[in-house]
Nucleic acid binder design. Structure first.
Lengths: 237, 237
DNA sequence: ACCTGAACACCGTTCAAGT
DNA sequence: ACCTGAACACCGTTCAAGT
């Protein structure tokens, strides 16, 4: 930020929790989870490593705060949609895109349940599931199934991005290709199903498949599908 | 193993990939992901840290192999069930119990997609989804939705166990209690849904909820429910 | 109150040297 | 072929000392 220099001139504290979190996010985006180091952070902020500990408890605290900054912005933005179903899709897609832009968020979500980021997602989803008319006793199961699905996919996406980066395969296609090739070398009998999915793996669109999965769970919950006439669950897709 | 001593006496190689993996699993079970260290491993095997690198590429390789040993045993054991639906439940529960016994497996699965452990689960699930009569074009989505749900829950369970351990809360109840207490302190309006789920959180049974989630997804897939007369998807639970 | 930066106790990994 | 263990290049975290 250009304002930082001026602020420092005036003698106001040069460091703040917010500046530290912003710098941490920048490092994480640039270099993945390995990119965030107290030494790198200190250098980026032109300070000593120890100074950071005045504003932040430890690395876990910093990671949580960075993750929460992304998740809070995402859940706050995902409010569009005419129906509850559409709004649930929007929340899911918001998380998908956020993790696409910041893969480390997917890893961090898997590491820190029961913290604020998770509560935000739970609250957003739960409200919409409730609004859709799911009966009281099914609310918890329905919402946590959705949440676990989203988290599972988030973790996988994050890990895939990390592996692609480590192997120097920048393009998503190159990475999927290498996985499909590995699948093709599996035993033909023992891994018949996996092998048969190779073509699908190469061709598939993560984001599209993600929404189909959400819809499938919503069907299972028994939530009315807007395309349906009578509001009964869709039978097949 | 008792035979190890004898083997060493005969001058056969004292170290093997298998022995290393077994020792790694023991360390991971005893001390979580932090418990596995090349130094601790070397000490447990009464050898030098460098010797391990003759049998194992690096820590990632070791972690993958340890994870795969657990997952392979789990998928191989989960073959029971009269219907495809029952067999899918068995696979899911097998993974649930394996991660309950070895929480680090949940973390590792989130870290290494497209490796053998994941392929094993994908294959087991996919075969049963296929056997249940899900149409060809829906196979990929149905299977990967199930897989992502299982992985998401696996990761959360693993993280919860790790946090409970770190905070010294051995009992599961104590940990859930601390989370529920945190939820109760949230803003009453902004987090109305989460707060309303506090009682459910304290009372719920992870394992039972897990199966309900699987059933819910299977309903969404449109898989026949054995309890149903006509084989149509259940409408409500 | 806030910052500095050297120091501590660890890591994973490598590698010359041994057998 | 297999093992040893010291050494290297890192970590997160602490803490006396400064302003």
């Amino acid at each position: 930020m250009a304002t930082t220099t001026r602020r420092t001139q005036r003698g106001a504290p040069s460091l703040s929790r917010e500046r530290i979190i912003d710098a941490a996010i920048a490092l994480l985006d640039a270099g993945g989870e390995d990119g965030l180091t107290f030494r790198a952070l200190a250098q980026a902020l032109a300070t000593g490593a120890g100074a950071i500990y005045w504003h932040v408890a430890d690395k876990d605290d910093l990671l949580d705060a960075a993750c929460d900054a992304i998740v809070a912005a995402t859940t706050a933005a995902a409010v569009d949609g005419a129906t509850a179903r559409a709004r649930i899709r929007a929340i899911g897609l918001g998380m998908f895109d956020a993790i696409d832009a910041h893969p480390w968020v997917g890893t961090e979500l898997a590491r820190s349940p029961a913290k604020m980021p998770m509560v935000r997602i739970l609250e957003s989803l739960g409200r919409q599931v409730q609004a859709s008319g799911v009966p009281e006793r099914a609310l918890w199961t329905a919402t946590s199934t959705l949440l676990n699905y989203i988290l599972g996919l988030a973790g996988q996406n994050a890990a895939n991005r990390r592996l692609a980066r480590e192997r120097g395969l920048d393009s998503r296609d190159g990475y999927l290709d290498s996985v499909a090739t590995m699948w093709a070398q599996l035993d033909a009998e023992e891994y018949a199903f996996t092998r048969s999915m190779g073509a699908r793996l190469r061709a598939h669109d993560d984001r599209e498949d993600f929404v189909v999965g959400i819809d499938l769970i919503l069907d299972g919950i028994g939530m009315a599908c807007p395309a349906d006439a009578g509001g009964m669950p869709a039978k097949r897709r």
